[in-house]
Every structure is written in C-alpha cells, then in structure tokens.
Design a protein around this nucleic acid. Structure first.
Lengths: 155, 155
DNA sequence: GCAACTTGGTTTTATGATGCAACCACTGGA
DNA sequence: TCCAGTGGTTGCATCATAAAACCAAGTTGC
C-alpha cells in the first residue's frame, strides 16, 4: 500500500495525537469550535475551505470523539457540531501553537489577535512545564521513561 | 492553482504555526531532534519514513529556521541537523499533544512512555494556562482581543 | 591504494489527498 | 407553490506522499 502512513498503532502519544488532529484543517476547526462556531456553514465561511473537505473532516472528528452532532439550538431542523470534553481538552495544544508563533514568528506584526484573560482583559501567561514539586522544567530537564512493559519506540 | 492552501498570510497565529509545522512529519522530526537525534539516517531509521520525504521536510524546517545544519560533531565530513531556539521552543506543543493523548486516548494502555522530571524520575505536571495574576484559566475564561496596532506617529 | 560498504541523498513511478466547481436534497419563508 | 439558503455529495484535475531504484561522496578493511 502506498497509503499515507498511519500512526494509529504507534505507541508514541505524540504520534497518536497527530493521527487524530495532525492534518491541515482539524486544529483550525477545533479552534473555531472553541470560539463558538457550531454550524457547517459557519466553519465553511470562517475557514474558507472546500465543502467536501470540511465534510470529511467533521465526520472524522466526530468519529474520533472530538466533536458530536446535536440538534440545532435555534430550533431549526439542521444539526450542529459541538465539542466534546476531548475536543475542549485540545485547548492547550492551540495555546501552545499560538504562543510559539507569538514568540518566534518572523513577522509577528501580522498576528492580529491576543489571547487574554476574559475577566481582566490582560494577556495570559506563557504555558510552562512544571515538575511535581513545582520546579519549572525545560525540555533538557525531562526524559522519557517506559510506562510498563518495555516496548521500544522513541519519544 | 489547485495547490494545497497556504496559511502564510493568515493573521491567526495558530494558522501561522500550522503553516510551518502542521504537516504529518515535522513535529515528529522535532520530537526526535529534542530527544537527541541529529543525523539524516537517525531520523530516517527512528521514524521509518521515506527518505525523499525526510529530505524535503528537513529542508523546509531549515528554511523555517527550526533546524540548522552544522558540521558533524564526530569529526566526519557529514552534516547534522540541530534545533535552533525556535525549534526548541516547540517543546510545549509536543508536551501538549502528549498530555492530550494521555488524557483522552481511547487505548491509553498502548502508550509506551511517560514524560518525567529527569532529576526525580517523577511524572511532570499537566500544562496549565494561567492569568497574569496566577488564576488558572479554562478556555471559556479566555477571549481573543484584536492586537492594538501601535499608534504610529511617524511614518 | 583500492575495493566494498555506509551515508545521505535524488529520481521515478504509482497512488492517495486536496481544491474547486457543479450538482442535488431538504428547509424555511413569502 | 415558488424560491433562496443550508448542508452536503460527486467528478475531475492537480498536488503530495510512499516506496524502491539509483547514485555520488565519504569511510573502512586490508
């Protein structure tokens, strides 16, 4: 098979996440959903993507338990796509991507929005990784440990 | 052109990040680089990807300033690919993806590794988003604000 | 010093994924 | 009933990816 390689059986959690949301559009759809969009047409017009691709992506996200379909809240007969807890759990991934752009983008002046604390209107803090005891950890201060049975497959 | 849409001009920082590292392989290459891999052959054998694709990805990552080429540290005439600060800055993205899998994966028992504090061997804490004043923020407690273009008094 | 092997790729070819436009079914309103 | 808007599906052209063959320079064994 000359298929696009699947990471489904991979034991690395990063690869497993990418299997679900590692394509070009899924994270943007989740981003829109987190900011309140629910309808097919809303996603399509906000993202400007082809309808067949959107259709396929929405179906895949529903299959992965990231979105769920629900009857429209406005009483019409159409349906809506709403985030599940798993979908809302992707929020830190989006924040990490956003902050990475803010810090390293070559043309940061082209970035149009800032993520702020809704209550105070002030920018949020950077995501930081901490140890159990609260020490701030850089990537060099972490390492990977096999979980149970030793199966080898890197990071 | 019926080209794959580019997010390069997009003003959303999430889209801009995906433009650079939103494809299937780039984040996995960065993951390997963070865990110490440097050589073409190391990436190729660890990731099991086609060499032409790896070649194209490495070139793109170098173009984006995420990797840089350097003479091999072992004295041979070959070259190495090392992470730039921008590349190392993607660490929180990988951690976010990893933790999302750990929390929501349908078959968490297949996940082989845990990210631990190197000093103590204990699992790291979950990434959390905090406000300036330290309050923990959920996605619902944040909002997007247009970035105020700095008022330009001179040209 | 030279053949054999390794490293680090490029080229070729087949196939899957994407983008776009056209088309269609259903809904809701006048 | 007619008709615009919503929510898709279908075809087709093009692009990206995968796998394997190929290749050139670097390195090793002798």
């Amino acid at each position: 098979m000359v298929k696009r390689t699947s990471f489904e059986g991979d034991s690395c959690p990063v690869a497993r996440a990418l299997e679900a949301i590692g394509d070009w559009w899924s994270l943007l759809i989740i981003r829109e959903a987190l900011s309140g969009q629910r309808r097919f047409g809303e996603f399509q017009s906000k993202l400007g993507m082809a309808k067949n691709i959107l259709s396929a992506r929405l179906r895949a996200l529903v299959d992965h338990g990231i979105l769920a379909t629900a009857p429209a809240s406005d009483g019409s007969a159409y349906q809506e796509y709403v985030l599940t807890p798993k979908g809302r759990g992707a929020f830190p991934i989006l924040v990490a991507l956003r902050q990475w752009s803010e810090e390293f983008d070559d043309r940061p002046e082209e970035i149009a929005t800032i993520l702020v604390d809704r209550a105070k209107g002030r920018p949020v803090k950077k995501l930081e990784l901490h140890a159990e005891d609260g020490r701030r950890l850089s990537s060099a201060e972490t390492t990977l440990k096999p979980r149970l049975a030793r199966r080898r497959r890197s990071v």
